[in-house]
């Protein structure tokens, strides 16, 4: 699959998800079994009113969406995928006002399961905000 086709598939994948649209999640880059997506800061998504830090749930949605895109763009080209399980570790609170960027890699795929890892940061890639790892179903 060439770069343009992969990009088109991933773009369609994101734009078809109403909740990803509700959070204004955008696709920044797409590779072969990898994806990078951004979640712009939004006051509606704040989890701690005292500090203005985004809620972990919004970060989960970014991670889940980005991991799903990484699976869909894997060279084995699954037709359908769904999250089996996803674990998120919150390393530090995201800086209020900053866009959060997630990078996901589908590092292994069997006929039935895709294994994915992701890292989210808010500007400084050396100081991640959160990491995630999960397993996704594969079919098609």
């Amino acid at each position: 699959m060439d770069e343009a086709t992969r990009r088109r598939i991933a773009q369609q994948f994101i734009e078809a998800l109403p909740h990803a649209r509700a959070l204004s999640i955008r696709l920044e880059e797409i590779g072969s079994g990898s994806a990078r997506m951004a979640l712009p800061y939004d006051a509606r998504l704040v989890g701690d009113p005292e500090t203005g830090v985004l809620h972990g749930g919004a970060v989960s949605t970014l991670m889940d969406t980005c991991c799903g895109a990484a699976v869909m763009t894997h060279p084995d080209a699954p037709r359908v995928t769904a999250t089996l399980d996803l674990r998120i570790e919150y390393m530090r609170p995201a800086t209020p006002g900053q866009t959060i960027t997630a990078e996901a890699t589908c590092h292994h795929m069997t006929r039935s399961v895709a294994f994915v890892r992701a890292v989210a940061s808010d500007g400084d890639p050396d100081r991640p905000v959160a990491t995630a790892s999960g397993a996704f179903t594969v079919s098609g």
């Binding site: 909740h19 649209r21 989960s60 949605t61 991670m63 889940d64 969406t65 799903g68 769904a82």
Partner: peptide
């Protein structure tokens, strides 16, 4: 409607469930 992830099924977004 805005909680939907997969509009084909349709199903709630995994991120919504997690949140």
């Amino acid at each position: 409607d805005m909680l939907i992830g997969n509009p084909v099924l349709p199903a709630l977004h995994g991120g919504v469930t997690s949140a």
